[in-house]
Design a protein around this nucleic acid. Sequence first.
DNA 1: TTAGGCATGTAAAGTGTTACATGATTTG
DNA 2: CAAATCATGTAACACTTTACATGCCTAA
Lengths: 190, 190
Amino acid sequence: MDVKTLCLGLLSVREACGYDLKKTFETSFKHFFPAGYGSIYPALADLAATGLVECEEIPQVGKPDRKVYRITPAGEKAFVEALNRTEPQHKLRSEFLAMIYFSDLVDENRLVEVLDDRVEQLRETVRNIEKHERQNAGDNKSAGAAFVAGFGAVIANAAAEYIESNRHMLTDDDNQSDGMLDNRNWAANG
Amino acid sequence: MDVKTLCLGLLSVREACGYDLKKTFETSFKHFFPAGYGSIYPALADLAATGLVECEEIPQVGKPDRKVYRITPAGEKAFVEALNRTEPQHKLRSEFLAMIYFSDLVDENRLVEVLDDRVEQLRETVRNIEKHERQNAGDNKSAGAAFVAGFGAVIANAAAEYIESNRHMLTDDDNQSDGMLDNRNWAANG
DNA sequence: TTAGGCATGTAAAGTGTTACATGATTTG
DNA sequence: CAAATCATGTAACACTTTACATGCCTAA
């Protein structure tokens, strides 16, 4: 499932222009499927070229024409098929964890900074999701949207908590344990 | 930070051939930085071409020569610099969550299957990490490696728990709540 | 006898990221 | 007066994924 398919999906909910879609990617999708203009605009052009969406150009003053895209019946069908066909992946790519893996080679001050930054970004993710949820509390939005938002908040929070609770493993100079690290610190308790 | 840099990092720990590195990616790095042969072999060739690693070819019978790569002083330096220079990203790309976002368009049976599969994969991730940690318990491995393993286990576990606790939002037919979903189900409690 | 492990790689296709290019209006 | 918002896109680059190509040894 690529950005193109996701644009099609968003257009199955409501019509939008590229700029609108970008905002949705920045709010609802940010924590699990980021996308920029460089992916979105070509995707829309492609969807229009293959007849999965239609485009209405609305003239504006002082800005480029607003191109409003609407999904077609063929588009609806294609999206539902793509959705049901896909074997859904779930991939993390973390330079942060990679850096931590090699943390003995990282400057101590830099390491502290990186950990602080990561925790702050995770806290911000949680705040953003909760804010967004509060703002849309009136809308009867889909169960899927709520589930996904909740997932993002819970995981970001768990990540922040983990880092705060375990960062001493990486930065404590006066480590009294002799060699073996205490696994109880992080053992997953289901 | 790309696969090439990570290969260099692993070679800073110990010498290895491409096949060995792949195994490390499959075990220690799988949950946060997947990589296949198609990335690893070209990366090694490139590192050798730029003098950051050296290669010794060890003849073998019945298999291709084993090419053992060792990091050079220039490689050590380049790696430490790359590590300290990088602004570490942490990106999730989840087709799973994307599918769930649009779950009203997914066939009910398919949805149940997808949720079951995801939970099982997360549980397996936890099992794999814990198994790997137990096996390496004797080694005095780096604090970073332990931290990263713990992170993976905790997050995978939290994700599995979240899905199990909230999947009713997506599949319950007899939903008694009138319109608004109960946020307390997933509110992050820090 | 079949699956898995060991061991190398290439080539093309697919996709996303980043930088570039433009510019009026609104808000603080 | 500066920054953000609205609004479009292209082109080059970087990188990964997937499929292809080969083949012996060992353990169940």
